[in-house]
């Protein structure tokens, strides 16, 4: 299966195993340039593993992962990051004992243009004004919402072409959830493609262009987010009982 020419990221026929257990069955996902694509699914559906596949943290047994036309298979995580993919990992994963400033700058680790990095740091502080007063603080001492801001700023610092996010709204207060969604939209409008993994379907479909639904390792549903939102199967599975507070 070849990916459509306009796809920035294309996973095709990916099969992944943890030992004997198969996690993905012929998984195929396309992220079009400039789009927000969301992968929905419950616990143990293989969502987070999909992210790990893209980032090279887990190697698929078969299948292809292409970014901007070039294969990512066999590349190490740092190499993939250098190709222009940044990540906002699950549960933020900040460097807890480093300062907020150091955390944000760690995002620019792959860059060598010091002056531009300094400018980008200023840009982040206009995008995330709250972090301005927190720069010298230990990242581990921030609240969950503030940490999410740092994680997003950190990801943007590498000037990525695409950001992958693992459950960016998980564990946040409703106020921060809205803020994070707004920011994802803003980031996307700046030209960064977004691939996000989410459990909260209603929120994700709010901002996504396309969505895929993953169930025990298989894509069971996919299409434009607007269409999926009204799909009864989605409503039954996700929008009914598990509507987030």
């Amino acid at each position: 299966m070849t990916s459509a020419p306009e796809a920035l990221l294309a996973l095709s026929d990916v099969n992944t195993f943890y030992g004997q257990a198969q996690v993905h069955f012929d998984l195929s996902i396309n992220v079009a340039r400039g789009h927000i694509v969301c992968l929905l699914g419950g616990n143990a559906s293989g969502k987070s593993t999909t992210m790990k596949i893209i980032l090279g943290l887990v190697k698929p047994r078969s299948g292809e992962v292409r970014f901007d036309g070039a294969s990512l298979i066999g590349l190490s995580t740092p190499q993939i990051v250098r190709r222009g993919i940044a990540s906002v990992p699950e549960a933020r994963r900040l460097f807890a004992d480093m300062s907020v400033r150091e955390n944000i700058l760690m995002g620019a680790f792959v860059r060598n243009d010091r002056d531009a990095v300094a400018q980008d740091l200023d840009r982040m502080l206009t995008l995330f004004p709250k972090l301005g007063q927190r720069l010298a603080q230990r990242a581990g001492s921030l609240s969950g919402g503030e940490q999410q801001m740092v994680a997003m700023a950190r990801a943007l610092m590498s000037r990525p072409r695409m950001i992958v996010m693992d459950e960016p709204t998980m564990g946040l207060s409703p106020l921060y959830v809205d803020r994070v969604l707004e920011l994802i939209r803003a980031i996307n409008q700046d030209g960064v493609s977004v691939f996000m993994v989410e459990q909260n379907a209603s929120l994700a479909l709010e901002i996504a262009h396309e969505a895929y639904v993953l169930q025990t390792g298989k894509i069971v549903l996919s299409g434009p987010a607007r269409a999926l939102k009204d799909d009864p199967r989605i409503r039954d599975a996700y929008l009914g009982g598990s509507e987030a507070a």
């Binding site: 980032l55 943290l57 190490s76 995580t77 740092p78 990051v81 250098r82 940044a86 990540s87 990992p89 994963r93 900040l94 460097f95 807890a96 004992d97 480093m98 150091e102 700058l105 760690m106 995002g107 680790f109 792959v110 950190r154 590498s158």
Partner: peptide, 24 residues
């Protein structure tokens, strides 16, 4: 130093450091 930052970041979260492009 950049490498020094990488050392500290790796010590705190190896996977996250790799996702910043640190060669562990």
């Amino acid at each position: 130093t950049k490498l020094g930052w990488a050392v500290r970041a790796t010590a705190q979260d190896r996977d996250a450091a790799m996702q910043m492009g640190v060669d562990v």
